[in-house]
Structure formats: structure tokens, C-alpha cells
Design a protein around this nucleic acid. Sequence first.
DNA 1: GTCTATATGTCGATAGAC
DNA 2: GTCTATCGACATATAGAC
Lengths: 232, 232
Amino acid sequence: MATTERKIRETQARTLSQRERILDAASRIVVREGFAALSMRKLADAIGYSPASLYLYFEGRDEIAEALGREGYMQLLAHLEPYAQEADARERLHALAHAYVAFGCGHPQTYELIFMARKGRSGQVGPPERRARGTAGVPDAPHEHADDACGVQLFAATLSELTLASGARADCALLAQALLATLHGAVMLTLARADFATAAPGPVIDAALDAWFGTRAAPGAPRAAKTPDATP
Amino acid sequence: MATTERKIRETQARTLSQRERILDAASRIVVREGFAALSMRKLADAIGYSPASLYLYFEGRDEIAEALGREGYMQLLAHLEPYAQEADARERLHALAHAYVAFGCGHPQTYELIFMARKGRSGQVGPPERRARGTAGVPDAPHEHADDACGVQLFAATLSELTLASGARADCALLAQALLATLHGAVMLTLARADFATAAPGPVIDAALDAWFGTRAAPGAPRAAKTPDATP
DNA sequence: GTCTATATGTCGATAGAC
DNA sequence: GTCTATCGACATATAGAC
């Protein structure tokens, strides 16, 4: 029956937009008050629903957090994208690195959300329970998982270009991981333990990159500060 | 009156040992079930108290978490200490770095505890609201705060030795911060986002150190694996 | 002084009425 | 499809028993 199909489609559309509405309100609460302050009741109030209704669109608070994390990751990638256009590999790497740290420090709650998905309970950090990708043969809804590693690849590609040019003295996949760890660590230390991070993240990243790939500017020149930093 | 003084001392001693008893039980719960599972009720049950009694010794859950974090930090330092004896600066740096990562990955809950003290609510990361310590004029228990930066200095000192020897080409305080960020980031990515950390932390750290200070082993030699790793 | 009993208000989640 | 009512667990505060 055509009418049945139409109804199904309408329901799906409504469900999708409802999910967006909920995520939107949740995002606003998290950015304003932090993730800890996100409760199902407050969220329901914000969109004029009863708390129970939220469970029609999400399995629970965890699924909402996960969706927010994915959303935040897309924002991070979008924030990095412009800097990936830079032609010179060395400049590009610097710009990407600083843009990454600037995003993390400028959007603490969003950044936290991205990296809080999945902790191992009870000591053993068992595999992150490989979720079944794609329910059937379907090409998998838009933004389903948004290939996780694509941010990593952004750095890895630039790195390989750079190390190849300067004589391939290192495993560039490992170095890309190390760079990512440095950026992530710098952000986390700045956000969570200001007492451990005695220096601003910007100069620290510069020092790391310079020690890895040589100073960017001509020797003797003052340290350039044209890269993005602290965008809050 | 002598008896009064004695009574005061006795009370203080009891309070101290009670705090230790509580912290001990809390530590056991956290290591076994993770920090999220630590509730005042469960903790009270574990030591045979009523929940309210805990508030006689601690201001609340947050203060317990903070105390556990300090305790964990001391464990981390104690874990690193043996490796600080190594005479050769380069070897020492490698050993310290790997020991650090091994501790973090081997004791996830403890490591989390160390770095979860103080998050900024609502975006602004205001000062950690200096709480009034010490019930009276007491010199405030031993191990008050155990100078936070002493772990950083451990790395900074070794680093300065190393960079000085090899021609001081970098700001070694900044490099120490960068190294610490790399280690912290490697641990955090491994613990929280196994999907982002595509490589094991050990080789990543090796790659970072090699790119910073040159390969440790003689050129052409197989990558040595005598440093500690994955101690869980 | 030390601890328990109890009360208040929060939370996530669910069952069932409309 | 949405809401009301409610459950069980939680942090915390207070009053008073021993």
C-alpha cells in the first residue's frame, strides 16, 4: 500500500529530526555547563518533553553522549580542514598541529566528549566491543561512523611527505601516532592539569615539531607566531 | 593540662588512621571497579560504617577522589624512581619514558584518578578554589601536596643533561613539557580510544624519542626491547 | 566525641495509562 | 507518541542516640 509506505517514511523523517532536536539541545547544555551537567530531565525540559520520551529516540544517556562525541569529532575535522590546504608540507603540519590544539583548548567540553567514548571497566580494557557496522548490505546511513582514522591520516599524509623529502629517517606511521599523542596530551594537560602543564601548549608544540623536523623559520629569526592559537 | 594534650593527639592519630582506612577501601574499590563505581554508600559498607560517618573525615566524594589522586601520583613516582638511577642519560630517558607509559597502561584507574582532579566547569577553568586545610593550627598531615612538578623535573633534568651533551639545540624546559605531553597522550589514547591509537604505545614512544634524540641503538641494530612495557 | 537513623532532592530508567 | 507515576541508587545534611 502506498499510504503505508508514506507513513513509514514520515515516521522515519520525524524520528530523525527529533533526534537532531534532542542532540541540539544536549549540545547546547554541554557547551554551556559541561557534560556532567547533562541530565535526561534537564534535556527533556529544554525541548518541552517528558524525560521518558527521550528514550524513544535514544537508548539512554550513553547513546546521546556517543552521538555528541561523533558530532564533536566532525567539528574538529571541519576546523582542521582549511589548514590542510596549505601547500608547503612543513607549514601545513605546523598549522594543523596548532589548529588541533587550539580547537581542543577552545572547546573543552566538546573535546572531552570526543575522547570519553568507551572506557574499559574493571581493570581489563577489553576490546571496544566491535559494534556491527552496517545493519545489512545498506551503504550505511550518512555520518554513520565517519571513518575514525581520517583525522590521523590527515597528519600521517603530511608527515610522510615531509619525512620522505628530508630523507625518510623514521617510520612515519609511528611518528604520526607520536605527534597525535603529543597534541592530545598537550590539550589534556592544559585542560585538566594546569599545574602539570607549566607552559602554554603553543610553544610546547613548536618545540616538539622543531626538535622533530628542524626549526621552521630561518635560523636566528624570531619564532613566528602566525599559526592559530587559543580560539575560544 | 597534659591529659588534654594527650587526648588531642590521640584524636588526631585516630582521625589519621581512619582517613587511611577509608582511603584504603576506596582505593581497592576504584582499582577493582573503576572510579565511577565509587559511591559513599559502597565505601561505607566496605569499612562497616554508615555513609554519614565518612563525612566526619572527608568533606565529600570529591575530597576522597583528590586524596586518591595524590596517592596514585606518589605510586607513579615510586614506580619511576628505580629507572632514574640509570647512569647514561639517553638510556635513562628511554627507561623513564617507557616506565611511565607502562604504569599508565598497567593501572588505568589509578592513572585516571591522577589526572581527573580539577576540571573547569562551564568553560572557564577558574582557580581550583583553594580550600582551607588543617582543622586547627596543626602542621597539616605529612605528604601535604608532595610538590606536583617533581615528576616533570625528573624528565627535565635528564633532558637537560642530554641536550647539553648533544649541543643544546632546543629549549629543554619546553621539550620536557612536550615529552610529558607525548607520554600522557599515548597513555590516554591507549586507554580511552583504542581506535585512535592504532599502534602500541611502546613503539610510538620509541619513534618519538628516536626522532628527537637520534636512534638509541647502533645504526642497523634491531630495535632493542629491554625497556619495561605493559606491566599489568 | 563518634556514629546511626533519617530526610531531602538528585539522577537514569521503566511500566503502563491516555 | 507522549505523559504520569514510580523504582532504586545516589550525595549530602541534620538530629540525636550511645
